[in-house]
Design a protein around this nucleic acid. Sequence first.
DNA 1: GGGCATTTACTCGGATATGATGTGTCCGAGTCACGGGGG
DNA 2: CCCCCGTGACTCGGACACATCATATCCGAGTAAATGCCC
Lengths: 167, 167
Amino acid sequence: MRLGRGVEWAVHSCTLLAALADDEVLPASGLAEFFDLPPAYLAKHLQSLSAAGLITALRGPTGGYRLRRPPSEITLLEVIEAVEGGLPAFRCTEIRRRGPTAAPADGYPLPCGIARAMWRAEAAWRAELRATTIDDLIHASIPEIDPRQAHSTASWMSNNVRPAVGD
Amino acid sequence: MRLGRGVEWAVHSCTLLAALADDEVLPASGLAEFFDLPPAYLAKHLQSLSAAGLITALRGPTGGYRLRRPPSEITLLEVIEAVEGGLPAFRCTEIRRRGPTAAPADGYPLPCGIARAMWRAEAAWRAELRATTIDDLIHASIPEIDPRQAHSTASWMSNNVRPAVGD
DNA sequence: GGGCATTTACTCGGATATGATGTGTCCGAGTCACGGGGG
DNA sequence: CCCCCGTGACTCGGACACATCATATCCGAGTAAATGCCC
């Protein structure tokens, strides 16, 4: 089981966008510069977040991205599913119905027990991710941030954040 | 996030091997026939289980596979990690240390908070899988099995199971 | 007839091709700011 | 001096190559049984 690299980028991007005021935006190029990531590829993942309705995109010279909801109302699970897709990790192909000893089709009223166990574990994973919001991540990391970095980050933000025009 | 198809095959194979007596074995070709799966590819995954020490392989004309431990002592997590590898699904590349506002290397005494949240969710997933044994899966499915199928399966097993010779 | 070496056939194990998916990039559609011209 | 319009530049969005891993397969190493031979 493996998660794509874009998940990490998307979550970090959301935490940075959470620092914006309601009437401010930050372009994808800014996010790419801040995290030193390939701009085009990061943009692709931001598109996924936009398509999922987690962030709002404004086009044009003063455009950029902005969280669509307050950070306390965006869960980690939503971000991950926006990037990775919401499909279950375990795929049951019902192999119990195949082979020489398979019963007739009406002999399987319930889903396969193995699939149920796997999905139960996935449900626990999702529950943990659903209980964590972007706001939680930020508050957990604030006391760990080096004061020097906090200052340089604030300075960088003031130079790259732009006021949203149309909104 | 996606799990390989081999996981399903490996778990089903373990449940079937659990039906064997301590001095019996079942060859990979038999497992492939029982589940109607490509023999060569299933064999590859059984090799992973063997390398992980979950099943024992006996070679030669009367050879085959056999569980190495009682079904009640083999967890779902072990089977999955044997096939998929034990690496964590989320990979933290510490992108917070990159970019124009990164602090010196000594400014990060703790792992990234995002990675901690992701790994906490993975821990919940693993805990659920660790709490489920092969024996649990069997006992949960026994009352659901069609009596006709139980009979044909028992018959098939008696024709394909072999006594282990060297052991 | 019994015992033993050889052959044989069947098993698992690792090395080898192929296809799907994640990774990375580019160009086009859309939109606001700016600058020039007219009123 | 103010307003309007055309131009330009910057943004996001989707379509296009490449790399990596899951998928699928085959051939070689190893072993017990069966066979034939010798005693």
